[in-house]
Design a protein around this nucleic acid. Sequence first.
DNA 1: TTGTAGGCGTTATCAT
DNA 2: ATGATAACGCCTACAA
Lengths: 338, 338
Amino acid sequence: MSKKVTTIKDIAERLSISIATVSRALRGSSDIKRETKLAVMEMAKEMDYHPNLLASSLSSKKSKILGVVVPTINRQFWSNSISGIENVAYDKGYKVMIFQSAESFQKEVEIVETLANSRVDGILLALSKETNTYNHIQSIMDRGIPVLLFERVCSEINSSKVITDDFNGSKEVVQHLIDRGKRKIAYLSGPISLGVCEDRLNGFKEAHKDNDLHFDQNLILEISDFTFEAAENALIKLWEMEDKPDALFCFADILAIGALEASRKLGISVPEDLAIAGFGNDDICRFVTPSLTTMSQPSFEMGQLAANLILEEINSEDDEHQPHHRTIKPILVIREST
Amino acid sequence: MSKKVTTIKDIAERLSISIATVSRALRGSSDIKRETKLAVMEMAKEMDYHPNLLASSLSSKKSKILGVVVPTINRQFWSNSISGIENVAYDKGYKVMIFQSAESFQKEVEIVETLANSRVDGILLALSKETNTYNHIQSIMDRGIPVLLFERVCSEINSSKVITDDFNGSKEVVQHLIDRGKRKIAYLSGPISLGVCEDRLNGFKEAHKDNDLHFDQNLILEISDFTFEAAENALIKLWEMEDKPDALFCFADILAIGALEASRKLGISVPEDLAIAGFGNDDICRFVTPSLTTMSQPSFEMGQLAANLILEEINSEDDEHQPHHRTIKPILVIREST
DNA sequence: TTGTAGGCGTTATCAT
DNA sequence: ATGATAACGCCTACAA
């Protein structure tokens, strides 16, 4: 009952020619007579032939597949950057397989290993927030698989990287808040162990320094759950302080939205009592009330750039490709919340 | 320079045993002496062995991989259902590869073909909105690959299916609007060619019938772009009518949000002048002003169910597995917009 | 331009 | 419990 799948061997037999010729004809190889090529194509169609990519990749050592690993696809920054990656990958004849680590180190390791063992041509990776050792990555790079880190990167790995200019982006947001007359600016950060978060914190500090403003460590809250609820709780905590902040900068839009929600519940008027700014520019920012000021990250373009870089590396001849580092500037989008 | 990758053959040689034994040991086969098994494992570690999944799948005809194809990952319904799929798949030792068709028929065909040619063990598919012929699906089913359609399904294919109860869900929303005293209810639909849209429209009509309300075809707008802007324009058009609607039901939350935005610009007060309801219950619904009434689709659970069904089919002995059809009831979430 | 034959890395079937 | 060896389906020198 299991239907007989036709292979190039079957085609060869029916046409009384060699397997090699069929293989070449199917792949549009150069030195092939027009007629035989056409004959093969026709027979392939007639016999409902479909190439076995496993066999093909195994033999050719190329899969024309890119692997992408992100913490989650359920946030616009990530899904948009994936679209950017696909946009250029498909153009150049590559397919992309998407995986989510769910912010789990364990899963990230498994996925990266599977990808490598499946012989994808390259891996685009954004680290999970739990990740702080990098053997799994070094290992596959040592095995000769091109890796590119984007957005969530680390200094320990010497690969190509595409990141946001977090330091200056953050600095600019804070400067904007200061320009609005705010002086006690709180910051909702993700885990400082993440490079992104560290850079944004440093930008935050730098802006304070530039303006001779006191940097108050008590106003820095580090939260590890990227959820609305976590942000709500954080704001509630901030508002219990005797010396309340007059502005809040959030590491990600999702947190800013949570904070906005909390301030509505607490009766805090935004931006008068508390100005709020986020980072990312998810669609939702335009639609909340008040609409949310945020740093717009060109996620789609980041994806495109990342894909271009790794494809360049994949198709480069020399074995010791020099890794590229690219930084993309985010753009401040000012809305009602500040 | 290209590093030598170690294979089971290398291990066999170093241990002076046969590759068959190594293969068995690595896979924890039963009849293997403890010592040899341990020796193999150790040597594998020492030589930094990694299995080649291509070779393994080629030979065993199993990949332990599920393919998932959705129109886009950039909407919560889809990303959540994928999480549901992964949730059960990973538990049962399967990995899942995610692909987006970007609502393009052409891309859907390519992806499905690639997936089949890569010998994934099963394919979970939500049709693109362009899709209205189904040979590509029938073809891979004929090749013996289990396929499950979810959310975006069609009657032409006899596979397992998991769908939302769109008819009753829609009916219930409309009934709710009627209960709120609304009488002229407009409907922003997606392409009626989509089964989902047709069912929801039918539910819409049914509710009218149940309440002896006149069904006005002029109040049905079919839009094909699932964007905020498309919805805004649609509402503007509706509002130019001499006989304006007093309620608006939208096929998807994203459209409802767009309509909300448009009504703000037009000075329409929601829900007094116009009640608005969506479908899906994306996070954003809670945070817009006024917050949005919507039909909550249990997307994560749908994904879980879908994965369970297809895995059951994959692991069923008999060749002629009977397809299952499951319908999941959405839940009305009433908020300020109605 | 085409054919031959070995190889890609595993699994699986017989033997032993 | 282990070993040979033939698949798996395709690619690619090397020959012809």
